[in-house]
Each structure stands twice: as C-alpha cells, then as structure tokens.
Design a binder for these strands. Structure first.
Lengths: 330, 330
DNA sequence: ACTTAATCTGAAATCGATTTCAGATTAAGT
DNA sequence: ACTTAATCTGAAATCGATTTCAGATTAAGT
C-alpha cells in the first residue's frame, strides 16, 4: 500500500493524501474525511524511508557505544532514550565491541543521512577518528571525552577520584594502594590515576610504585592486581578505579584471611547496581551516567535545530560513603 | 555530493558510477579507475536512505526491548549484535521502558520498511500486540515468550526453575520458601512458580502459602518479601525467582541475625555478573541470554532470506552451584 | 569475412513519499 | 458588481540512488 493507492481509493491525488497525513496546506473537509476513512480501513502507514529521503530527516539518532552490556553504557543509553522519546525519535545503536575499526566503520555508515545526528561514546579518540568525523555531515556529540571541535559531555573523573582520595585521607590512611587501568582509556586510565597521584602529593605523601597496580576492567583483574600489591606490602587502604576492580580486590583480601574494612579499606568508582548490596557495602562515587545521556541527547537536538551548542559540559558526581572504608587509628 | 556529481567529475553517467560502487555489470577498466579516483578524492559515500528506498532493504534490524539497562536485555542485544555484524547490519533499538503503548508504537514505527526485520522482547503479549503485529510487513521474531504464529526463542524457565528446586530438595530441604514476581510476566511470574509448585508436589510436600511471597524485580522487593515470609515462619531454604530478589532476601536474613546458608539456604536465577562474587557466592541458574540473542538474530536472518524458519526454539540453561545452599542435616 | 555472443554505456523509469506551482473556485471587502 | 484575498487541487518535479532496456562496440567462433 502506497500513497498512490490510497489516493486512488479516496478519489483524490497523492498530494492531497500527503496533506491530510501531515496536516499541511488546505484540504476541504469532505476530501479529508474520505482520505482518513480509506487510511483507517486499509491501515495505511507511510513508508518511512521514502519520507526520510524527501524530508532529509530520519528521526533517528545514532549512538555509538563501546559495549552495550555494561552498566555505564546502558545507563547513558537510557538517558538518551528518554530525551529521544520526547522528540519522537528512535535510536540506532552501533555496538563496537571496543574495536576502533568498528567505531570508524559505524561513523561512516551512520553519517550519510541515515541518522540526524550521532552521539559517540569513544574510549579512545585517534587521528583516524578525527579524520572520519571531519568528513561527516551530521552533527556529532562526544560522550566521556573532551574532543576538540565537538561538543563533549564529560564526567569529572579527575575530581571524582580526587574526592574519593580526600575521603580516604581524611580517614587517616597514609599507605594507600591504587588499582588502575590501562592509559589507553583517558578518562579511567589517566585522569583517575592523576587524581590519585596529585592527592598523595598534596597530602605530602610519597608515591610508592609497589602500591600501584594496573589491570583491566574485570573483577578477576581486581583480584590479580590486589594479589600483586599484597605480595609486596600491605597498604591500609586501596582505591580501585572501578567497582568491579574493588570487588575483585575484596575477594583477594578475604582469601588472604584479612577483612575489609578492618584490615584494609577499599573504594570503588561507578556505583554499580550491586555495590550498595555488596558485603560490606562499597564506598564508591557515582558518576551520573543517565544524566550524561540526557545532556548528550539534549545537546544533540539543539545542535540539530540551531547548529550551535556549548562546547563542553561536565557532569556532576556524588560520593557514596558506605562501609568499606574504616577509620585508621593512629 | 551525490552520484550525479561524481558522474560529472568522472565524465561518465550515474549508472556507471553505481556499477562501480556495487561491482555489478560491465565497466571498462579505464572508466572504473576514473570513477574510483574521483570517489577517493572527494570522499564520496552514498546516501543510505536513497539506497534503501531503491533496494527495499535497509540493512537495519529493529530490536524492541523493555529496558536496555538490565543485564538480561543487554546480553540479548549483545548476541544480536554479534550476528548482525556478520550480516553487515546495524541494529535499531527501541527501548519501551516496560510500557505497552510504547511497544505498540515502536512496532508500528519500525514496521514500514524502516527495518528489514524485528526482534521483539515482550514481557507481556496482549491482543493489541497481535493485531498490530499482523498488519506488519516485515518478519518478526519473538524472544522470551512463545507467541502463536511467530517464531519464538524462549528460555526454558520451567525446567530451569525445576532443576533449581530439585537441587534444593536433593540437599534435604523440606520447608522451602518462594519469592516470585507478578503473573503479568509469563516466563518469570508464571512458569517459574509452576515449577516450584510441581517440584513440591512431585516430592510429596505440602504447599504452604505462608512461604510464598510475590514481589517485583528489585533488590528491595526481595528484602521486603523475605521479611514477610519470616514474619510467619522460618523456612530452611528459599528459592527466589531472580538473583536480585535473592540478594535482597539474603540482606533481610542477615538483618535478622541469621546466616546464609547455615540457617537458610537461598537460590537465585539469572546468574548476574556479580552473583559469583557475592558473599556467599550465589547458587543460581544461568539462562543463556546471549545465546538467545544469537539464535533470535540467526532466525530472523533466515526468515528474511528464506521466509521460513522453525517455529519455536528453547535455549538451554545451566545450574551454577555455588555456596548459598547448604546440606540440611536430618 | 560474417555471424553470434560478450562487453560496455547512458537515457529513462523507478522506489514512495513531499512540495512547488499554476490554475480554479470560493469568500471577503468595498 | 467588481476586485482582491483566501482556499483548494492535482500535475510535475524532486530527494538520491539502482536497474532495465536498447543501442553500440568489441571479441570469439566458424
């Protein structure tokens, strides 16, 4: 069923049917009713692809995520969805599985008019990203990283990690371990580590390389890196750069017949769904991922409509102080 | 930049450019090279919308999910993505936020040629779903529920729950509580409960209504429902219908100064990411959600290509026996 | 050398909508 | 009654690709 068929059935021209469907231009009541009747009878829905071609607008926004099955990504997407819904827009997700070529490929695929705009959650932004992004005609909003020339919504990783460290320091800890993540990830790998280092130096504490371990994003890795630290010495507190790493570390500590927080305090970052219900409840810092998604989407829509938007926005965080950090008696 | 511009620059017709791009028909080497040179120079990428209109194929599959930010949904989507990638297909996600009108709206929106096929994860399938689905021209695969007339990929909720119960019974438990979920959800609310009831009756045990509590999907609800059960009597084991409910229940039990599994054994279902690392590690049953996604996508693609596919497929499960269930000494 | 098949090419039609434009009718204003 | 503005309508052009078709050229086969 296409518009021509409806027109024939209703005894009008396709133009009139289009006017009825879109409520535009003049249509005499009698013909409008006739068209509406036919549409209802045959259950006509217009071909969205044809509409998109003519209107140069698809009402779809593309979202490029590194891995949808992570809490971070799915929360951001949740936020984006909320805003998109209000704009009667669908979202098209490209799951890149952390592969850079996939990101590039997705950018290219989405770019040519398939979507009205793109929200990109990149872990790492390479030269290639820039090159491809520059050739793209639809607006792009970056999430999670500051990318020059593009509106970016970023988390305040540095200050969040710093706040966490200040909390640990305030509890009297002096020997503080760190479980981090590869520097390929700027936000998590670099900024959070920098905060750790700066906090120590501001507190006039020495940095001890034996207390620093770098893993990946898995729980298992948290276990392994904690093991590595304990092989050298026993800190009184450890800041892990994600909740998952913290949970792995706690398991390792427990296997060493030590307890959390009495023997060693542990903190995470992210405030995953279960952190609150872990035993002990994990002290962590919540990055407002859903808010990030909401802001990214709002920015994208104003970018689409006005062509301009503020360049960088930083999303807030909040400490979640629970029970995995103990006062260190002097 | 459109195909006409490329044609002009290369001194050929649009038809020839199309032939070069799609590697179809005859093109003499000299012209092919000329076209390729121009394409490379200007970085031309074809308008996907126009291609879709002509080809009657968008290379996008639609996925309707109740809530993307749940482990279940994101794992299924992960599986779908994997298969879609192999078919050079993007996925368009409609997040319905558990609202039925949204599901219907999404079905309608996606249906008219915007996607080549639809995978639908419905929690509840109403008359309205049927009516709309019937009017839709693209193939649909259902996930999570058997829907007459549509290929469905379902989890074996009944046998998974039954296997869990058999495990509990084999450990010698006789007073077994149950924390379930509203019967609106057929798979989780009805089938898992039926398995509980059947397992009891097969073991010639009485059903005790005071040991049965119905909540929702949250951790908090697990806590509340456990509270309700404990107000009446203390079972030796409780089967919760999801890991989240189980974790809530464990917290409640702990707050009653009882221990898991020594005083009360607990089981979950789902094998969420953290179940293994919970303390105690949770005995649960893993439903292979990613496999579900993979199978749904595979079925959809054969449906698109062949127009026919087996009607119902049941995805396997596996018990994960960990430490939250204890032997009940006689 | 001549027939037949294979190769090559661009004009025109097409996918299914929307919009412009010009012509026709009706309503409003004096 | 006549001018002007508002209302109404459908034919044709358009969005940007692909494909069919027919005609032209080249290669292969005898």
């Amino acid at each position: 069923m296409k518009i021509k068929d409806i027109a024939k059935l209703a005894g009008v021209s396709p133009a009139t049917v289009s006017r009825v469907m879109n409520n535009s231009g003049y249509v005499i009541d009698e013909k409008r009713k006739a068209v509406e009747k036919v549409i209802a009878e045959v259950g006509y829905t217009p071909n969205e692809i044809a509409k998109s071609l003519k209107n140069r607008k698809t009402n779809i926004i593309g979202v490029i995520v590194p891995k949808i099955s992570t809490e971070t990504a799915s929360r951001v997407v949740d936020g984006i969805t909320e805003v998109a819904k209000a704009h009667d827009c669908q979202i098209l997700i490209a799951n890149t599985d952390l592969q850079i070529e996939e990101e590039i490929k997705s950018l290219k695929f989405l770019s040519n008019r398939l979507v009205d705009g793109i929200i990109m959650m990149a872990t790492e932004v390479t030269e290639q990203h820039y090159k491809v992004a520059k050739g793209i005609s639809v607006p792009i909003v970056m999430v999670g990283q500051q990318v020059d020339g593009y509106p970016s919504i970023i988390h305040d990783d540095y200050h969040a990690a710093k706040a966490m460290m200040k909390h640990i320091l305030a509890k009297g800890h002096q020997e503080i371990g760190f479980i981090g993540v590869s520097p390929h990830d700027i936000a998590v790998g670099i900024k959070r580590k920098q905060a750790y280092l700066d906090a120590l130096s501001e507190a006039k504490l020495e940095v001890d390389d034996q207390l620093i371990a770098i893993g990946n994003f898995s729980i298992e890795s948290g276990y392994e890196q904690m093991e590595k630290i304990l092989a050298h010495k026993q800190p009184t507190a450890v800041m892990a750069v994600t909740d998952q790493l913290a949970i792995g570390a706690i398991h390792c500590i427990r296997d060493h017949r030590l307890t959390v927080p009495e023997d060693i305090s542990i903190t995470g970052m992210g405030d995953g769904k279960l952190s609150k219900y872990f035993i002990p409840p994990l002290t962590t810092v919540r990055l407002h991922h859903k808010t990030t998604g909401i802001m990214a989407a709002k920015n994208l829509f104003t970018l689409i409509e006005n062509g301009y938007v503020k360049n960088e926005m930083v999303v807030d965080f909040s400490l979640r102080i629970r029970e995995s950090v103990d006062e260190k008696e002097k």
